[in-house]
Design a protein around this nucleic acid. Structure first.
Lengths: 339, 339
DNA sequence: TTTGCGTATGAGATCGATCTCACTTTTCGC
DNA sequence: GCGAAAAGTGAGATCGATCTCATACGCAAA
């Protein structure tokens, strides 16, 4: 069926030189006669020689691939970063292999094992778990280039790029409190996830600083999808003395909360005030527009690419940890609570 | 630095057998003595032997990777499909390599060349161009497993999965006309893209069937991002006798149109009626909820995975072309035009 | 005792590209 | 015009896993 692939040997045969000479001509190194080189290039062109990355990789040790393991490729936050990474890395002739962990540590472990066996050049990870990450530690210790984004894993020595989750969350809740709210709920994803932990910490810190007791009943955990968030929101607001305000920890959950509240006939901000973490396109279309804690998302991908490329080049510098500040964007989803 | 990788040779040495025997024990084929096998497995375990996919791939010819080339990974439509593909393919021990073409034919060509050189097992493509696709034809002719999704490329013999773009678009425009609209604008992406062509065809077909002349001034082309769509919308509706209705060809553009109209102070559906192609999460939150042509998106990824796996297994069956029907979901973004 | 088969193992070839090394031919300086 | 350096080339080794083939042993049937 498939006309067998063209190998260097074929090219060499047509050009009437040895494989060694053909390789020299194609990769322009060492001594090659002009005439011979021309013949080789012509032959390669004519045959459509493409080279075999796998064989090259076996020789050099590694494939020109960088692995990206986000928590969930469907989250626009990660999709955007994937896109930015792809653009940057392609400039340097690397391919991006995206393998989502689906926020499952076991899957993450399996994936890393897998990618490792593929001999890829480096890893850009958003670790699912803040605690369980022996596997990442091992990877780092073996000297693999790694950049962690969005989340860090404890006790791992490697480059990382974060945003100020705790500060951002605290600012959001501070703002709600400043508007007179005291019964403030939080809708968060799996508490194993680092960002969830940090954003939750910001939430509790703000409450405590204002002398408000943290009420377990106001804490809702759900998977980070619009659907799950809708359900969680409905549960949260079905209680008798429901919260007057809600803080959501990512954009999918913010959207879910909006849909959930609408389903229940609750109006934002008249009945419930809302602040979300992570900005999203439609935040300014909804009525009212949604107040959010924005992350400098456009800077994460490019920086991650830069860091990983340096590591691949062999940089032995101390781990660089960047934390970007967040920014509270005040729109119209917060008002004073009704008494 | 990195403790060098464990090879089969190392395992064999520790187990005190030859490489051949070690391989037999690890992959359980041929004759191996029980005792020797046990020693090999133990040694592999102890050393943390992982195998080298690259070397295996060189031997077998191919990497356990399937390439996915969407038009744009940031479009939720493709992100969802990527996710579904990933889940399905992982079950069969394949990795998914996502490389977005950014709707650029040259980039698409370069990517395919690249992936080809990587000796991956198959390709799942959403071709950027409806016309310029010699590169895909060549790939198909060389017998590579290919599944085209969302868009087909002319004259290419391979499996494909589409939705009824023309029918869906026509239904949408028919609906607008039935509500009394005659000045109906369309906001579409690059007309080189297959889906854009088909959806545009549905648009013109509907107009023509109702005896309405297609007005060039009502046709706006923009890149498929929320930002570009906002600008295009504003341009479209800044005209003196502006359209009374708008049909947008994908969800990002629908969102852009919503934002653009809001910016201009135009109300949906009072001033402008709107129907979008492709449903999206927030379509039911906005006020009013948006009427859309929904695609059976959850069926595309799994089917594509199934098809590609069969091709990889060696199926020589005639190309299977599936076209899923679309469904007009009527919500509240269409009303009668003001005179 | 010999033939023969099932079991068990290792030596070596193979996949494709690259690199080292050895060898030949040309060129140039003195 | 002679030797040394430079230029050009090919044979063969290498990367790691796998597969073929040859070999060797044990045991049973002839």
């Amino acid at each position: 069926m498939a006309p067998k692939t063209i190998t260097l040997k074929d090219v060499a045969a047509v050009a009437n030189v040895s494989r060694a000479t053909a390789a020299r001509a194609l990769n322009s190194y060492g001594y090659v006669g002009e005439e011979a080189a021309a013949r080789v290039l012509e032959a390669a062109e004519k045959l459509g020689y493409r080279g075999n990355r796998v064989a090259q990789a076996l020789r050099h040790g590694q494939l020109p691939i960088i692995g990206f393991v986000p928590g969930d490729i469907q989250n626009p936050f990660f999709a955007r970063i994937a896109h930015d990474l792809d653009v940057e890395l392609r400039k340097h002739r690397y391919n991006l292999l995206i393998a989502s962990s689906e926020e499952d540590v076991d899957q993450e472990k399996a994936l890393l094992d897998n990618l490792r066996a593929l001999n890829i050049r480096g890893f850009i990870l958003a670790p699912t778990s803040g605690d369980d990450n022996q596997h990442i530690a091992r990877l780092a210790k073996d000297g693999a280039p790694i950049v962690l984004i969005d989340r860090v894993a404890k006790d791992i020595q490697c480059d990382s790029i974060l945003v100020d989750n705790e500060g951002g969350a605290k600012e959001a809740v501070d703002y709600l409190i400043a508007n007179g709210h005291r019964r403030i709920a939080i809708l968060q994803d799996d508490s194993r996830i680092f960002t969830a932990q940090e954003r939750f910490a910001g939430y509790t810190k703000s409450l405590q600083e204002h002398g408000i007791t943290v009420d377990k009943n106001l804490i809702s955990v759900s998977r980070s999808t619009v659907k799950h968030a809708v359900d969680a929101t409905i549960r949260l607001f079905s209680r008798r003395d429901r919260p007057t305000a809600l803080f959501t920890v990512d954009s999918l959950m913010t959207q879910g909360a909006l849909l959930g509240l609408r389903t229940m006939g609750l109006s934002v901000p008249r009945d419930v005030s809302l602040v979300g973490f992570d900005d999203f396109d439609l935040a300014t279309f909804t009525d009212p527009q949604i107040t959010v804690v924005a992350q400098p998302i456009s800077r994460i991908g490019p920086l991650a690419a830069e860091l990983i490329l340096e590591r691949i080049k062999g940089s032995q510098a101390a781990p660089r940890n960047t934390t970007f500040p967040t920014k509270l964007i005040i729109r119209g989803s917060v008002s004073n609570p009704q008494i």
